[in-house]
């Protein structure tokens, strides 16, 4: 078991977005979050990452890497400088291996500001690999990417899961990851009558 969540309620500001989420993630597993816009996929991922109140979430080796909508890279630094920085933050020494794995060797001395969106996304993925984290939380990792870059990212996720890692991903694309299951966010959506705002309770009927 890598992660266990019991009866998690997630709020965006004062509003309760999703309620009573319970899930457990084991090594090798990939959970795909599905649901329409506003259904709470990003909110759930942020809660799991510890960016919000994380009562009810138990991680068993405290090793989570989160990738949001932004890649967390500096445009005035080179690819190598950006990745060396993250290697220093995570205290890992797999930088050369990751650069090779993601075919970033030719770009390593280029400024990130000169890279395309897909190349920057690859850099964001490289940060996840550098972290050596067991659990990857990824929010729409393939948005605005072409098919080949998307498949590169899915291959990396697949490999991570095969190596006893786990991933929770929000995506609209079908992944071919063997041990994956879909979590439909609409199942946890808070209905109007469940809202706990005493002023709104019972109104608009």
């Amino acid at each position: 078991m890598l992660l266990n969540v019991t009866n998690l309620n997630c709020r965006r500001g004062p509003k309760l977005i999703i309620a009573n989420v319970s899930l457990s993630v084991t090594a090798g597993e990939c959970i795909i979050l599905r649901g329409p816009n506003g259904s709470g996929k990003t909110t759930l991922l942020r809660f799991l990452a510890g960016l919000s109140d994380n009562a009810g979430i138990k991680t068993y080796n405290n090793s989570i890497a989160y990738s949001g909508h932004l890649d967390g890279v500096k445009s005035t630094l080179t690819v190598n400088e950006n990745l060396s920085f993250w290697a220093g933050i995570y205290a890992t020494n797999n930088l050369d291996k990751v650069i090779k794995k993601l075919n970033l060797e030719d770009l390593s001395n280029n400024l990130v500001g000169e890279l395309s969106t897909g190349q920057k996304r690859r850099l964001g993925l490289a940060r996840m690999l550098i972290s050596n984290a067991k659990i990857w939380l990824m929010d729409e990792p393939t948005s605005s990417l072409d098919t080949s870059t998307s498949s590169l990212i899915f291959e990396a996720i697949n490999l991570h899961c095969k190596n006893d890692g786990a991933a929770i991903i929000s995506t609209h694309i079908n992944l071919n990851i063997p041990k994956s299951r879909v979590l439909n966010m609409e199942d946890f959506a808070v209905k109007r009558e469940d809202e706990d705002d005493p002023f709104l309770k019972g109104s608009f009927q």
């Binding site: 990452a49 510890g50 960016l51 989570i64 890497a65 989160y66 990738s67 949001g68 909508h69 932004l70 890649d71 967390g72 890279v73 500096k74 445009s75 993250w86 933050i89 995570y90 205290a91 940060r127 972290s131």
Partner: peptide
């Protein structure tokens, strides 16, 4: 603005 703070907040530091 570029998402680094979010990533740092979830790092071991």
């Amino acid at each position: 603005e570029d998402g680094t703070l979010e990533a740092l907040a979830t790092s071991p530091i």
